[in-house]
Amino acid sequence: MKARLSTLMHFLAGDAQADRVVPPTGYTARLTVFAAASMAFLAVFALALSLATGRLADSWGDALAKSSTIRITAPLDQMDAQVLAVMEVLATTPGVKDARPLSDDEQRALLAPWFGPDLPLDQLPIPKLVEVIEDAEGFDPEGLRARLAGEAPGAILDDHARWREPLVRAATRLRALGLVAIVLITALAGVVITLAASAALSANEQVIRVLRLVGAQDNYITRAFVRRYTLRALGGAVVGTTLGALAIFLMPSVGDQGNFLTGIGFQRWEWLWPALIPLFAALVAFLATRQTAKNVLQEKR
C-alpha cells in the first residue's frame, strides 16, 4: 500500500525533465482534452438524469404506496349506511392512519374534466369514495378486503398497486438507463482516450525511437506519456464537468409545478457526484494510456 502511495505521489509530482521528452502540442493533445471535456459534460447530464429518475421513482412509490381508495357502490338510500360501516371497519384496522369520505365538492372536482362543473351528484348513482392514508407500518390489503366484504359488501379497496407498479417500474428503468448511459460514456471516454493515446504514440514514434536509442526503459517512456495524457484528460474533464454542472444549476426551476424535466438536477450532497467525474476521467485516461503504451512499446524493441 505504501509502495503504491509512493508511486502515485511520484506520478503526481512528476519529473520536470521526463515531462519534457513528449512534445507538448499536437492534435492528439487537443483531441484528448476535447474528448474528456465532452464526455464529462455528457456524464454530468446522465448523472443528473439518473438521480432525478431515482428521486421520481422513490417519490411515486412512496406517495402512492401510502394512500388507497375505497369505492362504495350502493343504492342511494343505503349509501350513508355503507359509508358508516366502511369507516367503522377502517377505524379498527391496524395500519390505517387516517380515513375520510371525499366530499361532494371533491368528487365533483374529480369528475369535472369529463362531465363539466355542474354535475348533479345527488341525483346520479355515482360511487362514494373514501380516501385511506396508511401509517408507516401500512395495512394488510387482503385482510381489509375480507373485512369489507363482510361489513360493507358494496365497498371495493383500490390500493393503487395496479397502476403504481408500472409507474415505479418505468422510473426505475429510467434510472437504470441513466446508469447505463454513464457506463457507456465512461467506456466511450476510455475508447477515445485510448485512440488518442495510440495516435499520440504513433505520431511520436521518433520520440520513442530516440528514447530507446539513449537507453530509456519502458517504464520511463510509459510514465512520460501516461502522465501527460492523464493530466490532459483531468483538465478537459474539469472544464466539461464545470460547464455541465453550470448548465444544470442554471436550469429553470418551476417549484412545485415542475414536472420531470424541470426536476433534473442535483440536491445537497448529490453535488459531490459530478465532482468525482474529473477524477474518474483521469483514472480512465491513466489506465487506457498505460495499457496502450505498454502494447505499443511491446511491438518496438
Partner: peptide, 24 residues
C-alpha cells in the same frame, strides 16, 4: 527490453540521421 535499454547506456550510438527530439 529493459535489460537491452540498460546495456544501451554503455553503448553510445551516432546515426547518420542523428535522431534528436526537435522540441528540446
Amino acid at each position: 527490453r529493459d535489460d537491452v535499454a540498460k546495456a544501451r547506456r554503455r553503448i553510445g550510438v551516432v546515426h547518420q540521421d542523428c535522431q534528436f527530439l526537435d522540441h528540446l
